[in-house]
Design a protein around this nucleic acid. Structure first.
Lengths: 246, 246
DNA sequence: CGATGTTCGTTTGTTCAACAAGCCAACAAT
DNA sequence: ATTGTTGGCTTGTTGAACAAACGAACATCG
């Protein structure tokens, strides 16, 4: 007969009220919010209740601040929602297969788009990344962060905001997977080598603005990733990250 | 010489401390958190400060509560991170083309996976959705929510958690796009008709466990969506949602 | 016996009043 | 010109308190 009544705490209402102002455009990116005291007066609440609402907005990326300074409206960036999504996937024990399958769809598409939009400055950034990777490899340092950065760079060059948002949390989760892979005795050297060579091929295709080749190389690169994983005897249906590792 | 010192407010430290307990597994899903007073004592802070940290965790989906009751550790669900991501895309003025491109990659993959994993109960759910859509169409009600639910259903059947997380925020954003499309005079009837027929084809392929067909029909279905958009004279490079519409 | 009050301890939601600390700008001092 | 100093504004934090919701145990009444 009756549904459960939803009792909404005041701090949540505060949060929604401000969010509404932002989403309807009455408050735009860059605008300053009133001070906590003013907000408290306007809402007819205590400063503390308002603060709890502000904390929620802040976490949501809709408002930000510069070190203890006044709050202002922000454009949420995909890199901020990614860690939360990554955490969610870890806690749900996402498997390598799941991540790989999605990457098999998204990464080639990103490469294709990137090849069509790439500028000379972008090429430079890609080559810098490649050089840094060669250097790290030669000095026996980890190339994992650079690899993930390379793929994010490719996606950024493509400029598709939805794609960036969709792939970022998944991309971040390859860290533990790559880490495992490169720790395996058989892959210690050949793994990074093959990876760097693949990146080089992709960059070459980009230089020629050859979207077909760029996509093809990216596809092979991702496929190769899985082959390496299988080859090491790892189970693709196991969670990539144990919660213990953080 | 020196970098800017990062002054971290106590409430943020609270949040990180608890998050760490969760991510390292010392606190697992279902576990109850200590009461606010206990936490305040343990951290050596005021209840207020602790509460602000808890609000952040709550928003992050790591902890939850049942109506004013004690907090417990939760498994974040992809449906909770989606609205935030959707907001971010809206504020960044994501275009139809961007959404469509990603969907062109993800939806066929989802259909393929679904066809390989589909159970009889899943088929039933899909057919129920189709029937509800036919009914809504016959009664001249909007089918948009049902359409979005259909695609989410397909993705859920596939069971790839990373895919679900990646596609959900994008899927939600088709609401305004479809809304525009079906409001267009030329599409008022033919639009929904074509859409429903496509869904039927996809379901038929699923029944046969024919992954190739399911993927092919899904691909045509998404491609058709864009054709419809172009056909109405809409600019695919315009933002799909104005902030004013919320 | 079962449905309805009553009471109580626990925990969260909210208020009020206050102080500490960081930031900013203006101004004084060397 | 750089370095103190001052003061006002705003956020971060504290403390004590009360209101409101919940759960459980128990009393009450038909």
């Amino acid at each position: 007969m009756f549904d459960r009544l939803e009792i909404v705490p005041a701090y949540r209402t505060v949060c929604e009220a401000i969010e509404k102002e932002i989403m309807t455009g009455r408050l735009g990116p860059g605008d300053q919010l009133p001070t906590e005291t003013e907000l408290a007066q306007q809402f007819g609440l205590t400063r503390h209740t308002v603060r709890e609402g502000l904390r929620i907005l802040e976490e949501g990326g809709l408002v930000g601040r510069e070190a203890g300074r006044r709050l202002f409206v922000k454009q949420p960036h995909y890199a901020e929602s990614a860690p939360r999504a990554t955490r969610a996937l870890i806690m749900q024990r996402v498997t390598f297969r799941e991540l790989w399958e999605v990457s098999m769809s998204l990464e080639p598409a990103a490469a294709d788009r990137a090849a069509r939009h790439v500028t000379d400055a972008d090429i430079k950034a890609l080559e810098d990344n490649l050089a840094a990777m060669e250097k790290a490899f030669a000095e026996d340092r980890s190339i994992i962060a650079l690899d993930i950065a390379f793929h994010t760079l490719v996606a950024e060059i493509g400029g598709n905001k939805a794609l960036l948002l969709a792939r970022e949390p998944i991309s971040q989760l390859f860290y533990p997977a790559l880490s495992r892979l490169f720790d395996h005795p058989g892959n210690r050297l050949t793994g990074p080598r093959r990876l760097i060579d693949a990146h080089r091929k992709i960059i070459e295709a980009m230089k020629l603005r050859d979207a077909v080749e760029a996509e093809a190389w990216m596809r092979r690169h991702i496929a190769d990733f899985r082959r390496g994983y299988d080859h090491c005897g790892f189970d693709v249906d196991e969670p990539v990250a144990h919660r213990e590792q953080d």
